[in-house]
C-alpha cells in the first residue's frame, strides 16, 4: 500500500473504486453542498482495504437549519434516493435534532444505506473539527474521522468485528499516526489495546 499521510490529508493513488466507494462518493457529493460531514466507523477501515462489507455508512454532520435540510431532502429525492424512515422531511429533521440517526438509500434498495446523525458530543466535535481529507484518484475525495480516534473508538465498541477493524487500522497506520493523541483517546474511552499490540 502506498499512501501519503500528512496532518490533515491522506492520499491513496490508483485505488480501484468499488461499488461501495462509488455509493459513498455520490452521496457526499450531494451532502457537502449543505453541511460539513465526517465519515466514521466501519467504512473507514474498508476505505483503506479491510476485506469486509458493510450495510451502512455512518456519517456525522454539523447541525443546520430545517430549511437547509428541506433543500437537501428535496435534492436527494430528485437524485433517486429515499429515506428508509417513514417520516416526512419535517419528521426526519426532528429525529436528527433528537440525536437519532436517519437512513437514506438509493430507490428500490436498502443496502447499502447512509446513516446520518448530528454531532452530539466532544468526540463527535473532535471528529469533524479534525477531519482528514482522503484524496483518491481523479480528484475524488472524502472526509473521515482521525485514525487516532477511530482505533480507540473501535476498541470501545468492542465486538469481534470492531476489534478486528481496530487491529487492521493499527496495522496500516501504526507508523504514521500521532501516538500521543491515540493514547489520550485510549485513556478517555478507558480502553487498552495492548492485548492486540495496539498503542505500544
Amino acid at each position: 500500500m502506498k499512501i501519503e499521510y500528512t496532518q490533515d490529508t491522506i492520499s491513496i493513488e490508483d485505488k480501484v473504486i468499488s461499488a461501495l466507494d462509488r455509493f459513498v462518493l455520490d452521496f457526499i457529493h450531494l451532502l457537502e453542498k449543505y453541511t460539513d460531514y465526517v465519515i466514521v466507523s466501519g467504512y473507514v477501515p474498508i476505505l483503506f482495504g479491510r476485506s469486509r462489507g458493510t450495510e451502512d455508512i455512518d456519517i456525522l454532520i454539523k447541525r443546520f437549519d430545517e430549511d437547509v435540510f428541506t433543500q437537501f431532502y428535496d435534492l436527494l429525492i430528485k437524485k433517486g434516493y429515499y429515506f428508509l424512515n417513514p417520516e416526512d422531511s419535517h419528521g426526519l429533521y426532528e429525529m436528527l435534532c433528537e440525536c437519532l440517526g436517519i437512513r437514506a438509500a438509493k430507490e428500490d434498495t436498502i443496502i447499502p444505506n447512509v446513516e446520518l446523525k448530528f454531532v452530539k458530543n466532544d468526540l463527535d466535535d473532535f471528529s469533524i473539527g479534525k477531519k482528514i481529507k482522503v484524496m483518491l484518484s481523479d480528484k475524488k475525495y472524502l472526509f473521515i474521522s482521525p485514525i487516532e480516534l477511530e482505533i480507540p473508538y473501535k476498541l470501545y465498541l468492542g465486538s469481534d468485528k470492531d476489534i478486528e477493524d481496530a487491529v487492521y487500522l493499527w496495522g496500516i497506520f501504526k507508523d504514521k499516526i500521532d501516538l500521543n493523541i491515540l493514547n489520550r483517546f485510549m485513556k478517555k474511552l478507558n480502553v487498552d489495546g495492548r492485548e492486540h499490540g495496539i498503542g505500544i
Binding site: M1, E13, D14, V16, S18
Partner: peptide, 11 residues
C-alpha cells in the same frame, strides 16, 4: 502490494 492490487481484489 501496490494500491491497484489490493484494491482490485477488495473491489
Amino acid at each position: 502490494v501496490p494500491n491497484r492490487v489490493w484494491s482490485r481484489e477488495q473491489a
